[in-house]
Design a protein around this nucleic acid. Structure first.
Length: 462
DNA sequence: GGGTGATCATGA
DNA sequence: TCATGATCACCC
């Protein structure tokens, strides 16, 4: 189908809203398989032959078409299901490209996103929900560009084999092609005889999730851009850190007083501190950039002498039944949490110190795991994964608790690892993980080791 | 003091 | 009500 104008195209999309894949097919057979729904919507909804061409899908309008699946969460919310592939990376050609004429930018210039709800039970009943015209120049080009430059820079240095999804913030260099692809099928890279995995530029789910949320609720976010302009990721990071680190050395009580927050720990949640420090007033909206970048904010109580945290840092409940189905770290639930972190150390001399006048801000840092760190975390994850697959072994041990005993398990603990470990995280010891059949075990989750957090805080505190 | 399972507290 | 961030409290 060819549309003579953008408004004609838009009218066409509006008419597709609410249609199911089945109704588009109009009796034709539903062909299952990876990416099938996207292809059907392109073919039946827009009369587009399957193509791999470099030219935009709507060539005369310069608009690319992306079909984006949404999934229902456990809380019955609709959220982005997966990353959106933009284009394959050719390592050799990449280093000769400049952003302004790059293949990636070309593809990103203007995109028509068509959101559909993926129906897990009956994929052929998946439904088109909404659409969005995305324009790079009116969007987050500075951040996307710095991702692209970072990747290009690494490839130029002969480090294509060290690329990883999490080193970029929006436009990731993600693995493409089959998972089990053997090394001889990898690509050659410039300036290094070692081959590198095939990768593609793709938009991370944290970014497209924000696009989708803005379609649903155009006023749902506060944005740092409303406070200050920034030209790339580094500068955005600096704005965030500067505004928070203005408080370095000041007490929490000072902070609360200045911002008119009531005393008491409840008002000192990470989100409240960050919003106040950045200068947002009023309603507790989410901050757009934090969502886009997948930045998790953590306030970490630490010993003032050496920045050693009093506690390890927990992640959400990890159903063991789900992790035992996972074979690849970089496709695991846990991996998605490792996008990036803003740590705000709250220092005190002893763990017992409760007086907010004696708890003060340390130096906040933003951390994203490096390739090396990811490799180490992966090894520890694999060991945990293996223990779970083999079946966690529990032993009962007498203790003066409510029940008169505690349950020990053989999952790697904090002393066995350098980065991550697993520990209980339920409401109480009766809060059992129902997803796991190999043992009756309280809900568990991943934790960052204290030593890891200390190293992060220290390395950036020179 | 550090490691670990258990549990509190809070906000959506 | 429940998931989650945060912390407690027991043991070594």
């Amino acid at each position: 189908m060819i549309f003579s104008s953008k408004s004609k195209l838009e009218q066409h999309v509006i008419n597709l809203k609410g249609k199911t894949v089945n109704s588009l097919l109009g009796g034709k057979e539903f062909d299952k398989g990876k990416g099938a729904i996207g292809q059907i919507i392109e073919r039946e909804g827009f009369g587009m032959a399957n193509n791999n061409e470099a030219r935009p899908d709507f060539d005369n309008l310069g608009i690319e078409l992306k079909i984006l699946p949404l999934k229902r969460t456990a809380k019955n919310d609709l959220t982005v299901k997966e990353r959106t592939k933009i284009c394959s990376i050719n390592y050799v050609k990449l280093i000769d490209e400049h952003w302004d004429h790059s293949h990636a930018k070309n593809k990103l210039q203007e995109i028509l996103f068509v959101f559909y709800e993926y129906n897990k039970v009956d994929p052929s009943n998946s439904t088109i929900i909404d659409y969005l015209f995305f324009q790079l120049e009116n969007s987050d080009e500075p951040l996307i560009r710095s991702d692209w430059e970072r990747t290009r820079g690494l490839v130029e240095k002969g480090l294509a084999h060290e690329l990883s999804e999490s080193q970029n913030v929006i436009l990731a260099a993600s693995r493409s092609g089959a998972g089990g692809l053997s090394e001889d099928k990898w690509d050659v890279q410039p300036n290094n005889s070692q081959k590198a995995r095939k990768r593609a530029f793709s938009l991370k789910p944290s970014f497209t999730k924000v696009l989708w949320n803005e379609v649903r609720d155009p006023n749902g976010y506060d944005t740092i851009l409303s406070l200050q302009k920034y030209k790339d990721y580094k500068e955005l990071e600096n704005i965030i850190l500067e505004r928070i680190n203005k408080w370095q050395g000041k007490s929490l009580a000072d902070f609360a007083e200045y911002h008119g927050l009531e005393g008491g720990s409840s008002k000192n949640s990470s989100a409240t501190i960050v919003r106040a420090a950045l200068g947002f007033k009023g309603k507790q909206k989410k901050i757009k950039e934090f969502e886009q970048l997948g930045l998790t904010v953590k306030t970490t109580p630490c010993r003032s002498s050496d920045l050693y945290p009093f506690e390890a840092m927990s992640f959400p409940f990890q159903p063991l039944g789900e992790i035992q189905e996972e074979d690849r770290f970089d496709e695991s639930q846990f991996y998605t949490y490792l996008q990036g972190f803003l740590f705000i150390p709250l220092l005190r001399d002893s763990r017992e110190e409760k007086d907010l006048w004696n708890v003060y801000f340390g130096k906040a840092v933003i951390w994203r795991p490096t390739h090396k760190e990811l490799v180490s975390i992966q090894m520890e994850w694999e060991s945990i994964n293996q223990t779970i697959k083999e079946g966690v072994i529990l032993t009962r041990k007498p203790a003066r608790t409510r029940k008169g005993y505690i349950m020990l398990n053989n999952l790697p603990g904090e002393k066995d690892t350098n980065y991550i470990h697993m520990r209980p995280h339920g409401r109480d010891s009766d809060d059992i993980d129902e997803s796991y059949e190999k043992a009756t075990i309280t809900k568990q989750c991943f934790w960052f080791n204290k030593k890891l957090i200390q190293n992060i805080l220290k390395s950036k505190t020179v």
